[in-house]
Amino acid sequence: MRILLRRWACLLAGGALLAPYPLMFLIWTALFHGPILGLSARAAISGVAVALAVLVSLLPMTRRMEIAIATALLGDATGPLSAEGTQWRASVWYWLHLLLGGITTVLTGAAPFVLATCLAAPFADGMVSLPDWQSRAGGPGILVAAGALLAAAPIAGLVAGCGAVLSRTAPVLLGPSPVEKVADLERRTRALAARNRMARELHDSIGHALTITTLQAGTAHVLFDQDPAFARQALAAIEETGRVAMAELDHVIGLLREGSPAAAAPTLADLDQLLAANRTLGIGIDATVSGPILAVPGTVSREMFRILQESLTNVVAHAGRTEITVRLAATADQVELDVVNPLVPRRRFARHGGGQGLPGMRERVQLLRGEMTAAAEGGHWRVRVRLPLHPAR
Rank of each mutant, 00 (worst) to 15 (best):
L4R: 07
A156M: 05
R257S: 09
R89P: 04
R188P: 06
L18W: 13
A151H: 04
E84R: 15
A374V: 05
T325V: 09
Q334T: 13
A194M: 06
A110Y: 13
V365T: 04
R200S: 15
A329G: 08
V385R: 01
E240T: 13
A319S: 14
A374N: 09
A68L: 01
V144C: 02
W28K: 11
L158M: 14
V172K: 09
A350H: 10
W28R: 07
T267R: 06
V106D: 00
L389F: 04
I27V: 15
L281W: 12
G138Q: 04
P292A: 06
Q273C: 02
G141E: 06
T373S: 11
A375S: 11
A121T: 15
A276D: 13
L39M: 15
L130T: 04
V289W: 05
G47I: 09
H33I: 09
A121P: 00
E180I: 04
L268N: 08
L328I: 14
A317S: 14
A148W: 03
L268W: 01
F113K: 12
E336T: 11
E240G: 05
I324K: 05
E84D: 14
S301Y: 02
H390G: 02
P20F: 05
A191Q: 15
G354R: 14
A170P: 05
D204H: 15
S91A: 15
R386N: 06
M61K: 09
A329I: 07
L55Q: 10
H221S: 10
R197C: 11
L96Q: 03
I45R: 12
A152H: 01
A9T: 14
G298Y: 10
A247C: 01
H97G: 04
A120K: 04
L149Y: 05
V50W: 06
G34T: 08
L166D: 07
A262C: 09
R2V: 07
L74I: 12
C162W: 02
D225S: 15
Q356P: 01
S40H: 13
K181G: 04
A137F: 12
T78W: 03
A199I: 03
G75M: 12
G242F: 12
L367W: 01
H352P: 00
R327C: 08
R200Q: 15
R197I: 00
G355A: 10
L39D: 09
E377G: 00
M127L: 14
M372T: 01
A153T: 12
E363P: 01
V385P: 00
N278M: 06
I285V: 13
V315F: 00
P171F: 11
